[in-house]
Design a binder for these strands. Structure first.
Lengths: 348, 348
DNA sequence: CTGTTAGCGCCTTCAG
DNA sequence: CTGAAGGCGCTAACAG
């Protein structure tokens, strides 16, 4: 039963041809007679032949298994599950299979599974790295010439492509959304200007104001720690201004939650009267509140982009694994006091 | 760089030994001198050797890749994501890797990925089958002697193990829970007695009544379609009884929702005054309501059990892939008007 | 268009 | 305890 696995040689004998002919049929070569091909195909089905990809890989340019590795830090989080689904769809239709491993934020597990995947000869790797992951953890893989794409989080010094939110487009969409609701005084709250992400989101904020014809008021840009406490602080200061804002774009979701808290203290509420948009950094995704409009990444879309990017590199001959930062599609979910829905698309 | 992949022969040369010695080191054979082993190990690290599992598999009893396939009908659903995580944890610690594929309920996709996985030589398969899957769809795999475990849903005629909810234990726990809250008149609503699942859940109901010392009243067992509408119907009839029940165990979640609807119509409400327990059949998982106590499977636990079962069969020499129905752990989540928490464990 | 020959990287005898 | 062959299933040249 499971004993004599049928091989090319078996089907060659049964079809009265040679193994190489069978091999040619297998890879759809045009060098084979149509009648022969048909006969071989039939015999294959009859004998229940299954292609042994391992053997083929071994013989060929030792590398192109059609397997890609996908390692995720928390599959329990719906965001990452959707990410995996996105990857899966494109990977499947390209005839690849994906290894999936969950790290539960543990670098040691992550390294183990990466090693394991490498033994199996993955031809590419998509990874949403565990915290604490350093460029060194990926060095072995990248140096082996295996294309790597990081998603959601990126690893500074690593020789790999990364896929991060289009920060500017997100805040831009947020501003447009709020302006569309009639808000004239829109603040930008939270975060510190010394980090790159802040600069990008701030730029989008400025561009948004410009796009809707508002002036940029320095008073409405209030830096604070990128935390819930920081949000409370920032909104507190904002409301003390002579002409307080009526809406705010927040650096991230944590800040946005803090802003909601702060509003509540003042007897206000996030909603139609005071519009709050938070940039969703996934980390707090599980605690999303409905009274908040968030700018968030479409996880499936991100997964698809990641897979496409990876496959492109694999097919391109696994070179050019440079730090190519790519943009992703953003969705502004409207949730409170509005029917407007903003969205921004930025191509690869 | 990625050119000359280092092989056993390379490291043999560098370490000044023969390939077979290296091979022995690789599989931790005791037949090798400690000093030699150390030297070889060092050289391996220095040259950045990675074990080629494909080649090994090819040489060996052509079958034992350490890969298991996991196919899921909807990874977007948190339940299945957790299931996958459960599988992943045990599979990882057993030194296996998992292929994960999402079918989105499409049998054609499912068949494709299964075929693909087979080409890669999976040594076992865990599958939560798409609807419409028949025993025939799995025949090729099972006949090849590859152990298969179905989870969540099972496929009648298939030669494989399956993992389904412990129905009796679930309803039994539900009855105990309600009795613990002081309910004396507990009904069993929904479903039709001609299906196996009904019989099992009904049995648990009876056992539960017995366990808490209640009489079984035929009036309190009301069959109806296993749908939301069926639930409305059943509770309607129940409330017309001379001594209406004060609590109900429902055949499944759909029925339970209907019961809640029906109660609301009568000015009642699921909660402390009228206890409702629904058996969670996953299908409706996304629409869970908080005022409802549900008997539901622990998805991670189920995944772990599935993986353990599969690995056991793989290690046992891939025989005995008979229809072994196994039980799973159930959790009764308490949610309304009670601090009691029931749970039932049924071992493999 | 088809058959022949030679390995891919590894593991298993079987001698030394 | 270590070295020398042979072959897993498949494909890549070459011949016919």
């Amino acid at each position: 039963m499971a004993k004599g696995r049928v091989t090319v040689i078996d089907i060659a004998r049964a079809a009265g041809v040679s193994k190489s002919t069978v091999s040619l049929v297998l890879q759809g070569s045009p060098l084979v007679n149509e009648a022969t091909r048909a006969k071989v195909t039939v015999v294959m089905r009859e004998l229940g032949y299954v292609y042994n990809r391992g053997a083929a890989t071994l013989r060929q340019t030792s590398g192109n298994t059609k397997i890609i590795g996908m390692v995720v830090n928390d599959l329990t989080n719906g965001f990452f599950a959707e990410l995996a689904v996105g990857v899966d769809t494109v990977v499947q239709s390209a005839g690849f299979v994906q290894f999936l491993a969950n790290t539960a934020e543990r670098v040691d597990r992550q390294q183990e599974v990466i090693a394991s995947m490498r033994e199996h000869g993955i031809s590419g790797l998509i990874i949403s790295p565990a915290r604490e992951t350093t460029a060194l953890d990926l060095k072995a893989v990248t140096e082996a010439g295996i294309p790597v794409v990081t998603a959601v989080r990126n690893i500074p010094g690593a020789k790999c492509s990364s896929l991060v939110s289009d920060n500017a487009a997100g805040t831009l969409a947020g501003v447009k959304h709020l302006a569309g609701l009639g808000h004239k005084r829109i603040a930008f709250l939270g975060g510190y200007p010394d980090i790159m992400v802040f600069q990008e989101r701030y730029r989008g904020y400025c561009e948004g104001l410009q796009a809707v014809g508002h002036e940029l008021h320095a008073d409405y840009v209030i830096a604070s720690s990128a935390s819930r406490a920081g949000g409370v602080d920032a909104i507190g200061r904002a409301l003390k201004l002579p002409e307080p804002p009526t809406a705010a774009v927040c650096f991230n979701d944590a800040v946005a939650f803090g802003v909601c808290d702060g509003l509540r203290v003042q007897g206000l509420e996030a909603g139609p009267k005071f519009g709050v948009v938070g940039f969703d950094d996934v980390i707090e995704a599980k605690t999303a509140v409905p009274s908040l409009t968030t700018v968030s990444v479409d996880p499936q879309g991100m997964g698809q982009k990641a897979a496409q990017l990876l496959l492109k590199q694999i097919n391109a001959g696994k070179v050019e694994a440079e730090s190519v930062t790519t943009a992703v599609r953003l969705i502004v979910r409207e949730s409170c006091g509005a029917t407007v829905r903003g969205s921004a698309e930025a191509p690869l």
